[in-house]
Each structure stands twice: as C-alpha cells, then as structure tokens.
C-alpha cells in the first residue's frame, strides 16, 4: 500500500496530536476544525495534558498488574500495584511508618537547611571575592567531581549510625550545587546595575542582598532543585549503609526479607517526597519571581 496525501482528516496515517501537522484542517475556519484537530488543541491544553498523563500512568500500572497476574515470575519477586497498595496500607497503619518518616524527614530537613545556609553564604563569598574563590577552588573542584557518596562510610565512623551521620552525608551531597549555582549567578550579575546602586550610595551589603541575590534567583533555584535530588540520594544511601530506622532502612530490610511489595512502598514514598519538595520549590520560585511576565 502506498501512502498518498490523505484526502480527509478521518484516516490519517501518522498518530499526531500536533495541530500544525494537520494542514487540511488549518485551512478551515476555527469553528469548523476537524475532530482530530480539535483533539489536538485539547491535548495541548492544561486539562488535556493532565488527563492524558493520568491515563498513561494508569495504563502502565494496569500492564504491571496484568503481568504479575500471569505468574510468569513469582508474585513475591515481580510485585504488583495491588500488592504494593496492600503492603502500603499495612505499613502506614503500623508504628514503623511514623518512626521511619520522622527519622528520614528530620534528616532531610536539617541536612537541607544547613546546606541551604552554608551553600548560599559560601556561594556569595566565592562569587564576589577573588581571594575566597581561589582559596575554596581546590576543595570544591575535588569534592564536586568525585562521587561524594563514597564518604558515607567514613561519616558513619565519625558520627555514628544515628541521625548525625545522615545529616553529614546529605549536607555533603546537597551543598555543592547550591554553592556553585549561587556563585555562578552572582558572577553573571549585570555590573552596570551594581554601578547604578553604588552611584546612589549603596554599600557592599546593599549591593549583595538587594541587587546581586535577587538577580541570581533563577540560578540559585536551579541549584536548589539539584540539591533536593542529591539530598534524597544522600539520605537513602546513608540509611542503607547503617541505620535502625528511616525510609532507606525500610528499603534495606524489605530487600533482606524478599518483601518486594514493601520495598516498592519505600521507593514510592521517596518518589512522592521528591515530587512534594519540587513543587514546594516551584511555589517559592513563583513567589520570588512574581514580577515576571
């Protein structure tokens, strides 16, 4: 069968939601758009994207459930959406959930807050001061280019298997993107804006806090996004190595006991935490950047 240019919008060969592909309907007036073109515009709309996204997730979950019920591999190995839900319900009604979530949550909170403060302060120092930049450069280069997670066992020796070693690992993972992005943001600030404020009498503190930092918001937020991913990674790995509670500990013990369903509960918990943190960052960013068109 040879492809000839399709005569009507009804039987098109390629599956595409892009309205611009559909040049036959483009010639028509808007209100007489073909069904396919109308679907295309809907699919690009906010609601349309949500619906299609949800549908595709449900499709994958259904496929997983069907695969599990075919018993090609043992149910305890493959796990299944329903199995994960059952295990999740059991886990979240037990006392373990609160203990694990509070442990991991506090580790992330403390580790991330310290990273944020230290990262921005060091980033400002490095981004505005050549001496600081030269002094910190070797450490940052070395630590940033190496897999810092390799230091986690060392921190267990130094800080024990409690919360302190996790906070240390999280800090070491999360602080670098914040330092580097803050410094890069400050370095690229419009120097004429700085000159303008100095002409109107600004001192160094005003220049840094009222001109340079606000100018660097997009760059700092990009660093914070990376830092969240790194912080979660640090938390999980640190808990895998040595711990008595936490979501990483949950994953580790579920794995040791071949409780695949429970293991997925841990994984999804972390994934959801990551999503929540990312949307929190987006909210803060929107608030800081509300002047943007």
């Amino acid at each position: 069968m040879s492809y000839i240019p399709f005569p009507s919008g009804a039987d098109v060969p390629a599956l595409s939601f892009d309205i611009e592909d559909d040049f036959y309907s483009m010639e028509e007036e808007n209100h007489t758009l073909s069904r396919r073109a109308r679907f295309g515009t809907w699919a690009q709309s906010r609601v349309g994207r949500r619906v299609i996204g949800t549908a595709s997730v449900l499709l994958v979950l259904a496929a997983w459930q069907i695969f599990a019920s075919l018993n090609i591999v043992q149910a305890s190995v493959s796990s299944s959406p329903w199995g994960v839900i059952t295990a999740g319900r059991a886990y979240y009604t037990s006392s373990h959930a609160l203990s694990d979530l509070s442990a991991s949550g506090l580790e992330i909170l403390y580790g991330f807050l310290v990273s944020l403060v230290v990262g921005i302060v060091l980033g400002v120092a490095i981004g505005t001061n050549k001496l600081m930049e030269a002094a910190f450069d070797p450490f940052i280069n070395l630590l940033y280019s190496m897999p810092r997670i390799a230091l986690a066992p060392l921190f267990v020796i130094w800080f024990g298997i409690g919360m302190e070693s996790k906070i240390a690992v999280i800090f070491l993972n999360a602080v670098f993107p914040i330092i580097l992005n803050t410094a890069a943001g400050l370095r690229s600030v419009d120097q004429e804006l700085v000159g303008m404020s100095r002409l109107f009498g600004a001192n160094r503190w005003f220049v840094v806090t009222k001109i340079m930092l606000p100018s660097s918001v997009p760059s700092i937020v990009a660093g914070i996004r990376l830092a969240i991913g790194n912080a979660l990674l640090g938390m999980v790995v640190a808990e895998l190595i040595a711990s008595t509670r936490g979501v990483g500990f949950l994953i580790e013990s579920a794995s040791n006991n071949f409780q695949t369903d429970l293991l997925f509960v841990g994984i999804f918990t972390i994934a959801i935490a990551a999503l929540i943190l990312m949307s929190a960052v987006r909210l803060i960013e929107r608030r800081l950047d509300r002047w943007r068109p």
Binding site: E192, L193, M196, F200, G201, A202, F206, P214, D289, W291
Partner: peptide, 24 residues
C-alpha cells in the same frame, strides 16, 4: 546620574525603582 540604559531593577515596581537612592 541618568544612565544610557535605564538600569531598573526588574523585580521592583516603578515607584520603588525611583526611590532606590532614598531606600539606600
């Protein structure tokens, strides 16, 4: 000084931009 480029702070309102030397 009136600059060649306007050099206004994009995150501040027009009023706050005019008042920057007074804020300082």
């Amino acid at each position: 000084v009136v600059f060649q480029r306007a050099l206004l702070l994009p995150w501040k309102s027009v009023l706050e931009n005019v008042a920057i030397s007074l804020t300082i």
